[in-house]
Design a protein around this nucleic acid. Structure first.
Length: 593
RNA sequence: GGUUCCGUAGCUCAGUUGGAUAGAGCAGCAGCCUUCUAAGCUGCGGGUCGGGCGUUCGAACCGCCCCGGAAUCACCA
């Protein structure tokens, strides 16, 4: 039973008893702000018409009557038009004991809903960079949060493995590599292919420059640059399944997949279903016929098919080229129809950057016009770009922050810090490696995920990422300290249990219990908003509270065995919840650090 | 120009059904390790919540108009 709802019903009864009705406006009960005393606050301004008294008098009258009716209430205070209600410590302790015994952390029963979260969806012509990191971390975390909310979740990755951009790196490799392979040069496969993608661009630009020097216009030059023509020819041969081109394509994509696998592993993300656009790009053509029949689409004289969205404030959109080949939108429509059908999805979430807002707006609109009522169950989780101090990252200009390099640097920094503090001196090399990886990745992941997904965020590689303050390592550290206490308690054979009889709690202890109890609601909110940042903020607040408590009160040195046992149980539960919250962000927490 | 999004402390960011004196972290300054891990704790300074008008008991939040920034508006994906 939700405490707020419980209070609202009690207040409603009280108002009826006092004034003969509860008024038509819904009662406003919220958590009391930190700087005031109380657990929940009733805003009484909207009740003045009912009571025909001053705000203070109304609040006092309601407070007194509530005290008579609600056994769980400790007391109340009134400040201006705010009635602050405090509940008894035993009440909170009772709820806390129940929560501690609940291995599911308050997660409700299965909702029966199936939700697909598509994320990552990389191109196979270059390695992953910082922008992909945000995508991957968000997708993974949102999926984990939705699972914790009781949904069945399918994590999907749709690899963009075909198209002109893939042919660009292929043709450049053919022309300039001298047969270089990951095995021959030791370069990670995705980086090797990316190198030739950059190489293509270099030659392409040079050729344009030459053509323009010879008198051609810029547009002509771009169209006629020999290397571009070669890439286009390669795409045609690929679509015709030319064995030679196909073999090269398979070979180079194979290198990339080995590289991606390594990056995904380091990132700690995974997928239930990986599919490839080379298999799905044909989908959607039957939808074009369907749309034409329904009169939603129309065909132009050149044979191309369009939809007119000007009535919806948008433009005309192409769905099929004059030569009968499909475009991005056509494929996505087909893929959506297939997924909702085959997987029996209730919801579909696309984790894709906000540069594609228009695309998804159109996608939903078209599916709705075609009569698919599940179109409204598509969510584009549109996240903001990651910018550098110099501005936007650009692959071709070498201003990207490479994912592999960044992760290595983070872990290395974590290791240096451990060496500096000497905290891992008595660890084995393997343990030290594992802990450094946890901390470095924890810092990176928390840094990315604590920001509201839809906002553009700034990443400054020079200042790197902090390990102090509102950071992943701060929260991990809190966990490690608790685990250390629990180890010592266990070695000393101390009890770790909540009291069966009444016990005096410190304010900091009740506060911690209340915070722990808020975890399920934080997860639920994160699920509603598709925002890991909500879970991050929750974990930080909890860790911060515990650190203050830890500083002021000793657990192991407490002389009263019952109090000590309670404190150990409290600390253990805080550690459990921290660990669970961080897991929802894809962050591991160490036993020591 | 159309559409969508953003603008909160020097910097990075919180702040939702409209509520109390707008919060953290970093950076700066000043303290705290014979006491469970100082990656910690405590204190200080720092704000026209981009601007204006409106709605009302009450606006960072809602509405309208400006200013500034981003993305997008391809027979690319």
């Amino acid at each position: 039973m939700n405490i707020e709802q419980f209070l609202i019903s009690k207040i409603s009864e009280t108002l009826t008893a006092l004034y003969g009705g509860a008024g038509e406006a819904p009662l406003q009960v919220q958590k009391t702000r930190k700087e005031f005393t109380g657990d929940y606050t009733l805003v009484v301004f909207p009740l003045l018409k009912l009571s025909r008294l001053s705000p203070e008098a109304t609040a006092n009258a309601v407070g007194e009557e509530l005290m008579r009716r609600v056994a769980e209430m400790k007391d109340f205070n009134v400040i201006k038009g705010f009635l602050n209600i405090s509940l008894k410590d035993e009440f909170w302790a009772g709820l806390f004991a129940m929560a501690s015994a609940d291995a599911s952390f308050g997660a409700g029963a299965s909702t029966g809903r199936t939700i697909m979260v598509e994320y990552s969806s990389p191109n196979t012509n270059k390695p992953l960079h910082l922008g992909h990191i945000r995508n991957n971390l968000l997708g993974y975390s949102v999926a984990e949060i939705l699972k914790a909310c009781g949904h069945r979740v399918i994590k999907a990755n749709l690899v963009n493995d075909r198209g002109i951009h893939i042919c660009k790196s292929m043709i450049a490799w053919q022309l300039f590599s001298g047969g270089e392979t990951p095995a021959s040069s030791g370069l990670k496969g995705d980086h090797l292919v990316g190198k030739y993608y950059v190489e293509f661009d270099k030659h392409y630009k040079a050729e344009i420059k030459d053509l323009m020097a010879a008198g051609a216009t810029e547009e002509e030059s771009k169209r006629q640059a020999p290397i571009m023509l070669q890439a286009q020819e390669m795409l045609r041969r690929w679509e015709a399944r030319d064995p030679e081109v196909y073999a090269l394509w398979e070979r180079m994509n194979g290198w990339v997949y080995v590289g991606f696998e390594q990056t995904y592993k380091a990132l700690g993300v995974d997928f239930d279903k990986t599919s490839y656009e080379s298999n799905t790009y044909i989908l959607g053509k039957s939808l074009v016929d369907e749309g034409l029949q329904k009169g939603v689409f129309h065909r132009r004289d050149d044979g191309s098919v369009w939809i007119d969205l000007t009535a919806d404030g948008l433009d005309e959109k192409l769905l099929l080229r004059g030569d009968g080949t499909s475009v991005y939108m056509t494929q996505d429509l087909g893929t959506a129809v297939q997924r909702f059908g085959e997987e029996r999805l209730d919801d579909m979430i696309y984790v894709v950057g906000n540069e594609q807002n228009y695309h998804f707006q159109v996608l939903k609109l078209i599916l709705g016009k075609l009569g698919y009522d599940w179109a409204s169950h598509i969510t584009h989780l549109s996240y903001g770009m990651v910018e550098l101090p110099e501005g936007k990252m650009k692959s071709r200009e070498g201003t990207v922050v490479d994912a592999d390099e960044l992760m290595d640097a983070m872990v290395e920094t974590a290791r240096e810090m451990s060496v500096q503090t000497g905290k891992l001196d008595d660890c084995s090399a393997e343990q030290a490696d594992a802990i450094s990886a946890m901390i470095g990745m924890g810092a990176l992941k928390y840094f990315i995920l604590k920001v509201d997904p839809r906002k553009t965020m700034l990443f400054d590689p020079r200042e790197s990422i902090d390990f102090n303050g509102n950071t992943g390592p701060f929260i991990q550290y809190t966990h490690a300290r608790i685990r250390s206490i629990l180890r010592k308690a266990s070695e000393a054979g101390l009890d770790c249990a909540l009291p069966s009889a009444a016990i005096a709690y410190l304010p900091a202890e009740t506060t911690l219990m209340k915070q722990v109890l808020e975890f399920p609601e934080a997860v639920a909110q994160a699920g509603r908003e598709f925002s890991p940042a909500v879970v991050g903020a929750y974990a930080y607040e909890l860790a911060k509270s515990f650190n203050g408590y830890y500083h002021d009160h000793s657990i192991l040195k407490e002389s009263d065995p019952a109090v000590r046992a309670m404190r150990l149980a409290l600390a253990a539960q805080v550690a459990r919840v921290i660990s669970k919250a961080m897991a929802l962000l894809g962050i591991e927490v160490p036993e020591r650090m």
